[in-house]
Nucleic acid binder design. Structure first.
Lengths: 332, 332
DNA sequence: GGCACAATGCTCAGTTTGAGCATAAGTGAG
DNA sequence: CTCACTTATGCTCAAACTGAGCATTGTGCC
């Protein structure tokens, strides 16, 4: 190492305060057309435990953050991680539970996609449908009923400001994120929606009562999670919904061979919208994302479907292979 | 705070090791049709100093990481930050200068866009054209000459493996990132290209000689930077190139009013490619990204151009306003 | 065989793109 | 004052892409 570097590193270190740093992982699978995240039970015995995401320490033995995460998750959950990407680094005060100490606490969050859905390794771990935590994000069966109540509360929150300027701004945000006031629903704005609900006081975690939730809320504002883990989950979903449009990451969730309709169901599960079947197939075919095998499905009702597999070569051919998601008006 | 939460937090902290955490900022401006990043001089007197990005400690006084960054940058550089987004968190071993200690060192990197280009505040700070550090990324004047030499070296590196399987994989990566072997150039893969060059040993920083570089290299593999700052810069450029396609972030770099051609030049500067002028205007008009003012340019040669301003309302209207960049074959 | 059901094939009008031609409105030289 | 030159802006046109829906093909079941 050169002298210049040593000096630089010293200066760098001198400037930094030590902080507590942890990892959080959103481990995603999709089976039976449902998007699932791996959750664990966290919290003590008092006031009940609550769902959380797998989280742990930064393991210094590993050469890179990502490799450390892989090793840690694979050991803990016996899941083989396919695709891994860094999501976001959450700071202490962004999170709740600000204890006022001078020590910052960071969480480096990762998104991981796994192909198979094993019984979830850890005793306390479980695969949960992610819309359990964010029910308003699932538009596959049409606009969720719960959105009516949510919107009413959000509008009340927007009205509840004295300052007309701030009120205007709040209404704009509602339009932008929830499609109120003439805006359109954009399935990628998962995090923005969550944060708006948080600000509007509709998220129990905001009041520091993470373990608690009246049953009524569960279907409207969803199941709470420990700490800021729902925010992390929202970040993951938003990122994934964006990514499938220009990268073939969905295939990380599929078995080796699958039918085009299963693929469509998975994409729909992630994006929370329905797609036009024929056009979806056309898109997949045009992009050359899959190649046929000689297998077909059997047993189910209806005409058997051809089994296909991911065509790895697209990675080398197309600049941005993925699915542009145009939601279908009609159910199918 | 509930008991459950306290327990959770305690568990969380117990799991975490203290680490040294710092911030790094890529502060971007665009003036005269050139993309610029704010750089500082780092390093001691021996072996010369080298360019680096503004970096500093995590400041615990601030409620969120982003706000802390804003305050810190604005105090240091007297730049008013417009758009700010978190880029990536770089771990110690990803970086160079692994000192083997058990203490992890993280850098949380941010991307910031600033509108005006002041004389750069700090004495040691300077605005530098970012292609100075990554010259192969600038295709505005056609394919950079230096790419010839780079490709030759990369191919040699790929050939240089005994294992034919690994060699195949390396060639695939070359095709994917540099458009060799029949691939196409994708302007977003800035980081992947940098990392490939790094692995291939074409980046002086890799050998821990950051301050050193033969003059010949400067035009071929670019000016080195301290530590892993070039990697951070590459991450920023890649992110920005992606973002302008679906978010109107370019306007954060523009003065209050500007001409369509200035806008085009800025987009071209960021993306490193040329665009078809008439189609660019059509796109901007269709998307309703700007509105006319009644000003026009004067003094310059040629027909005066109408001055326009950013139409903030698009943020509320369009789902993903931005520029889809279709490079023009011909210069204009 | 006939029916229900899902898979797959195909059409068609309306947009969006890529590329280029044509015209307008200034400046500076002669 | 006019011409040459330069940049801005308007407009066209074929090709490709989209959104939507109709039609046909295989299977299991009665």
């Amino acid at each position: 190492m050169t002298t210049a570097q040593e000096t630089e590193r010293a200066a760098d270190s001198a400037l930094s305060n030590p902080s507590a740093v942890g990892l959080v992982a959103v481990i995603v699978a999709a089976t039976d057309g449902e998007p699932r995240a791996l959750t664990v039970q966290v919290g003590g015995q008092a006031r009940g435990r609550s769902d959380g995401l797998p989280a742990g320490p930064l393991v210094p033995e590993h050469p890179t953050l990502e490799r450390g995460l892989r090793a840690w998750v694979e050991r803990q959950t016996h899941q083989r991680l396919g695709y891994v990407e860094q999501l976001y680094t959450f700071g202490d005060r962004d999170r709740q539970g600000d204890d006022g100490g001078g020590l910052h606490s960071l969480s480096v969050a990762y998104l991981a996609l796994v192909r198979e859905l094993r019984p979830a390794g850890l005793a306390e771990a479980a695969w949960r449908n992610w819309y359990h935590y964010l029910p308003w994000e699932d538009w596959r069966a049409g606009r969720p009923d719960s959105l009516g109540e949510i919107e009413a509360k959000l509008l009340a929150w927007a009205e509840g400001t004295g300052d007309p300027k701030q009120r205007r701004r709040r209404e704009d945000r509602l339009g932008l994120t929830f499609g109120l006031c003439g805006g359109a629903w954009n399935e990628e704005r998962v995090l923005e929606r969550y944060e708006l609900l948080f600000e509007a006081g509709l998220i129990p975690e905001a009041q520091g009562q993470s373990g608690e939730a009246r049953d009524a809320d569960l279907t409207v504002t969803g199941q709470p999670m420990a700490l800021d883990h729902r925010r992390v989950l929202a970040t993951a979903i938003g990122r994934l919904r964006g990514k499938i449009k220009y990268r073939p990451v969905v295939f990380e969730l599929m078995p080796p061979t699958f039918t085009l309709f299963q693929l469509q169901r998975t994409v729909e599960a992630l994006s929370g919208t329905n797609l036009h079947k024929q056009n979806f197939r056309r898109l997949v075919a045009q992009q050359g994302l899959v190649e046929e095998t000689d297998g077909v499905t059997s047993g189910a009702t209806g005409r058997p479907a051809r089994l296909v597999r991911f065509r790895r070569e697209v990675l080398l051919e197309r600049p941005a292979p993925g699915f542009r998601l145009r939601p279908a008006r009609r159910p199918t």
